[in-house]
Amino acid sequence: QVALSRTQVCGILREELFQGDAFHQSDTHIFIIMGASGDLAKKKIYPTIWWLFRDGLLPENTFIVGYARSRLTVADIRKQSEPFFKATPEEKLKLEDFFARNSYVAGQYDDAASYQRLNSHMNALHLGSQANRLFYLALPPTVYEAVTKNIHESCMSQIGWNRIIVEKPFGRDLQSSDRLSNHISSLFREDQIYRIDHYLGKEMVQNLMVLRFANRIFGPIWNRDNIACVILTFKEPFGTEGRGGYFDEFGIIRDVMQNHLLQMLCLVAMEKPASTNSDDVRDEKVKVLKCISEVQANNVVLGQYVGNPDGEGEATKGYLDDPTVPRGSTTATFAAVVLYVENERWDGVPFILRCGKALNERKAEVRLQFHDVAGDIFHQQCKRNELVIRVQPNEAVYTKMMTKKPGMFFNPEESELDLTYGNRYKNVKLPDAYERLILDVFCGSQMHFVRSDELREAWRIFTPLLHQIELEKPKPIPYIYGSRGPTEADELMKRVGFQYEGTYKWVNPHKL
C-alpha cells in the first residue's frame, strides 16, 4: 500500500502544474464570482478556492472578487462561507491571508454602469489591468444573457486571457439551449467557454479513460460480442427537503440524466481518441451522441416518491408533501431510460440510465454486464461477469466473477477481482471535483468540460421526450421513500436483457 498525506498529494500536483506551459504561476489572475451571495458560491466555490489557495495550487498573485446585487462586505462573505471551509486552528494565518486577497463589488446584473465599476475595481488591483480574468457564473440561467453581454462589453482583460465558467442547466430543451449557446458564442470563442459538469471532475469518471485505453485486457472485450448491457446509475437517499420548488422546474431527467449520466455513457462508449488533447476527446464523445436516436417512450419509466409510513423524519414525507412543490405536480423524481448506440461496436446493446431521489442508498456507478459463458459445464450455477466502476461513495473498480467454492467439488461461487483505489492508495485525500475543474480552467484544459456541439446532441436525444411529458403530463409511478424505485423499472431492465441475480454482496474494501 502507498500512504500519501494531503501535503504529498498537493506537492505532486504542484510539480505537475508548474512543469506545464499552460499554468502561468507568476502571472496575476483575477477570479470573479458572479452571484457571490448565492448558495453555490457559499457552499462550493469559495470553499474550493480556499482549498486550492491553502494547498498552494493557485497562481501566487490571485485575487478573488465577488459580485452580486446584495450590498455585502468581505466580512459578510466570510461569515456565510467559512463554515464550509473546514479550516483547522493551525490554518488561521493562512485564512487571514486568503481573505486579504478577497474583495466585493455590489451591482445589478443588467446595468452597464455596475460592470464599469467592477472593471475599475479590477484595474485598481495590483497589475489588475493586465491580469488573466476568470469569470464564474454562479447564477440562474435567466440572467446569463445580460451578464455575459455586460462582461464582454465592460470587463474583459485587454492583455491577459479571459475565460468564463457556465453552470448547468444549459437551457431547458434543445431550442433554449441553442439560443443560449448562440448568444454566448457570439461574445466569446469556444476556447474561452467552460460549461461545467462537476461529474466530469470526479476521480473515477476520469479513471474510465485510463482503464479503457491503457489496459490491453479490456480492449478486445469492450464491444457487443461480449457486453450484454451497460447500466449507469445515480441514486440519492434523500428527497427534495424543502427545495422542491427549484427541482420541480427541471425534474430528474434535466437535473441528472441528460448531463451526468449521458457524459458517463460517452466515456464508456467512445472510441479511442487520437490523443488526450481536449478536442480529440470531445470529438469522440460527440460521435457517440450522434449514434444515439431520440428516446422512445416505451423505453422510459418515470416515478415519484411517496412517504414511507414506517419511516422516520423526512422519510415519512412524499414529494408532494414538500411545501415548495406545486400542488398535484407530476414532475418525476425517478427515471429509467434505455438508449442504444447504433454503431458497429455497440449495435443492440442497451445502455440503461437510472437516477432518482429518496432511494435506498447513495450511489453513482457504471456497471457493464457481460454475456453468459458459452457451453456451460457447471449446471447453470454460473452468474454473469460484471465490471463495476463505483464513482461514489467509496470509489472502487471491481470485476464480479466466478471462482471455485472451497471444498471437494467443482462448485462455482461469485467473488470479485478488486482493482480499488483504496487498497493501493491508503487514506489518500484526493482533490474534489470542483478543485480539479477550476484548476483545469486556470490551465486552459477543456477536456472535462462540455463543448457546444456535445451539448446540442445531448438535448436532441431528450427534448422530444421532455416535450411529450410536458404536454401529456403522465402521472409518475409512486414508489416508497427509501425503496429501490418503481418495480416497473426493474421490469424494463429485465425486458431489454439485464439479469439481476441478487445473490452477490459487494464487500467494501475500504472497511476491511
Rank of each mutant, 00 (worst) to 15 (best):
Y305V: 07
N427S: 10
V397F: 12
S452L: 07
Y500M: 08
G328D: 15
F409Y: 15
G318M: 05
A335C: 12
N385R: 03
L265V: 10
L368K: 04
P326W: 07
C291R: 14
I480P: 11
E314L: 09
M257N: 05
L339P: 06
T333Y: 04
S329V: 03
R451V: 00
N385H: 03
Q381R: 11
D376N: 14
L368V: 15
P431Y: 11
F378Y: 10
G307W: 01
N259P: 01
T399S: 14
M401A: 13
L437A: 01
D322Y: 04
E344T: 12
P309W: 11
L267W: 02
V301H: 05
E488D: 14
I352W: 03
F410N: 08
M270I: 07
V268T: 12
G303F: 04
D321Y: 05
G444R: 09
Y305I: 00
D490S: 08
V496Q: 11
K287Q: 09
E294D: 14
D418I: 01
M264P: 00
E416H: 07
W459F: 03
D280E: 08
G318Q: 05
T331K: 04
D283N: 12
H448R: 10
T463H: 02
P326T: 07
N394C: 07
W346Y: 03
R345C: 10
R451D: 03
A274V: 12
I377C: 11
D347E: 14
Q258W: 02
F378Q: 05
K363N: 08
Q380R: 13
Q380G: 15
R390Y: 05
N299M: 12
V281R: 00
K272N: 06
Q499P: 04
R495G: 13
Q296G: 14
V295C: 14
D283E: 07
E312F: 14
R384D: 00
Y479Q: 02
L339R: 00
L353F: 08
G422V: 13
D453F: 00
K287R: 12
D490R: 07
A336Y: 01
E414I: 14
P350E: 02
A332V: 05
G444C: 06
K494P: 04
A364Q: 06
E457Y: 09
L465W: 14
P478D: 12
G375S: 15
N259Y: 02
H448K: 12
G313P: 10
D372I: 02
K426H: 08
L465S: 08
P474C: 14
G356T: 00
F449R: 03
A269F: 04
Q304N: 04
P474G: 12
H467L: 11
G311A: 11
F442R: 04
P412M: 10
D376L: 07
E365K: 02
I389G: 03
V301L: 08
R354L: 00
K272I: 08
V397M: 12
F334I: 00
L455Q: 03
Y425R: 04
P431F: 08
N298A: 14
Q296W: 11
L387H: 05
V397K: 00
E488W: 05
E365V: 04
K290F: 03
S415T: 14
V338D: 06
S329M: 00
L359N: 03
L419I: 07
S415D: 04
D376P: 11
R390W: 03
L339E: 05
V281A: 09
T503E: 12
D372N: 11
E312H: 13
L439F: 10
Y479R: 04
G348K: 11
V325Y: 08
L339M: 13
G444P: 02
T463V: 06
A374P: 14
L353R: 03
D347I: 07
I292G: 04
S293T: 15
E435L: 08
N394F: 10
Q499W: 13
K285P: 01
W506E: 05
V397N: 02
S293Q: 14
V388R: 05
E414G: 10
Y425V: 07
G444L: 01
T333I: 03
E454R: 01
L339G: 06
V366N: 01
N360Q: 06
I477T: 13
D255E: 02
G407F: 02
G307D: 10
N259W: 02
N259G: 00
D347P: 05
L262H: 03
L265G: 04
Y421G: 00
V286C: 09
A335L: 01
A297S: 15
G497S: 12
V428E: 15
E395N: 08
V301N: 06
L302P: 03
R451M: 02
D322G: 05
L417W: 00
G497H: 12
I469R: 04
R384S: 08
Y504L: 05
V338M: 12
N360V: 00
C355A: 13
D347Y: 08
Q381K: 11
L359Q: 11
I377W: 11
V268D: 01
G356M: 02
Y479P: 01
E454P: 05
T403E: 06
V268A: 08
Q304E: 00
G307A: 14
K429F: 10
V391R: 03
P486L: 06
W506S: 05
Q369I: 06
N423T: 15
P474V: 14
R254V: 00
K317S: 14
N394H: 09
V341E: 00
Q392E: 03
L471C: 09
K426T: 13
R345H: 13
C382E: 09
K494H: 14
A358Q: 03
P478M: 09
P309T: 12
K473N: 13
P431W: 05
Y305S: 03
N277F: 12
A335F: 03
F409R: 15
L262G: 07
S452Y: 05
L466S: 06
L387K: 03
Q392L: 01
